[in-house]
């Protein structure tokens, strides 16, 4: 059968046959005949003309194919087309930092990641971060579940809740912004109102500095702020914690980039007092090894 098709195609390639088949078909060639038409007030010469409104104010949806194939037959393909031309829903899992932290005393670990799912404008956005020391219990572990809504070319407003899984049980309402600042700074700022009425905030920023196409240096800074003393958590009013870091990653693939780096964290005045009372460090320097990955 397939052979026959080919045979037919080869035979039919002869021009004589093709000509024969075409005889009797006469179709208009090219556009319609010229017809003088009164010019409206337009200046076509330099492109400075303002667009005029459509004389024909038709607003119907495009349904010409319904008359040929039937409205029922067209419906599904029309919906597929709509989805296929900008209506997609996608998801991304991003591990920003998954790292081993070497420092004085017992070494520790930290993670920060996010998952989003949705369209261009609205997404479900889940974030998690935490840290701890090996052999001890986690010092921080939180998950945020947010609705992320694009409000401009570079920024999303994110609202939702955060739950802390370490220490005294706390749930917070979250309002934040995440996006790209001028000079390509990735920024993330959020305000948290806990179910105990405590108001805190966090501001994070980082920027990628390409040394080569795959070797990337990333300075990063984070500030944790509090509107009040939270004795239970050892958080003092004002600046609670600050951290700066410098991480050097190599992108074997865009999705897979191990890194090494250094970070330094310290506590603000009030929080430092709490820390000293607990015999915790007031400032820590970490040498870190970790992985940045996404899919």
């Amino acid at each position: 059968m397939k052979m026959l098709i080919v045979l037919a195609a080869v035979v039919a390639a002869s021009p004589a046959l093709a000509q024969q088949a075409g005889s009797g078909v006469a179709m208009p060639k090219g556009p319609a005949k010229p017809e003088p038409m009164s010019m409206q007030h337009m200046d076509m010469g330099d492109g400075s003309a303002q667009p005029t409104t459509t004389p024909d104010t038709a607003t119907d949806p495009a349904r010409a194919a319904d008359a040929v194939w039937g409205a029922d037959a067209m419906r599904a393909s029309r919906e597929e087309l709509r989805e296929g031309m900008g209506g997609q829903t996608l998801g991304k899992v991003m591990i920003d930092r998954l790292e081993y932290q070497a420092h004085d005393g017992r070494d520790g670990y930290a993670w920060e990641g996010q998952v989003w799912y949705g369209g261009d404008i609205d997404k479900l956005w889940i974030k998690s971060e935490g840290e701890g020391t090996f052999g001890g219990k986690a010092e921080q572990a939180e998950v945020q579940v947010l609705w992320s809504h694009a409000v401009g070319p570079w920024f999303d407003v994110q609202t939702g809740i955060r739950h802390d899984f370490v220490g005294p049980d706390r749930t917070h309402a979250v309002v934040g912004v995440q996006g790209l600042l001028p000079y390509e700074f990735e920024a993330n700022a959020a305000i948290f109102l806990s179910d105990k009425g405590d108001l805190t905030a966090r501001v994070e920023g980082d920027v990628d500095q390409r040394i080569t196409q795959r070797l990337i240096l990333q300075p990063r800074a984070e500030l944790n702020l509090s509107a009040q003393d939270i004795r239970e958590l050892g958080v003092g009013a004002g600046l609670d914690k600050a951290e700066i870091g410098l991480r050097l990653r190599y992108e074997f693939a865009r999705e897979f980039a191990p890194y090494i780096g250094i970070s330094h964290g310290w506590r603000g005045a009030e929080s430092a007092d709490y820390a000293r009372a607990r015999r915790d460090d007031v400032a820590t320097t970490n040498f870190v090894v970790g992985l940045r990955a996404w899919f």
Partner: peptide
């Protein structure tokens, strides 16, 4: 070209 009418709108 067969149709050389001036366009009626932009």
């Amino acid at each position: 070209n067969l149709d050389t009418r001036a366009p009626s709108r932009l």
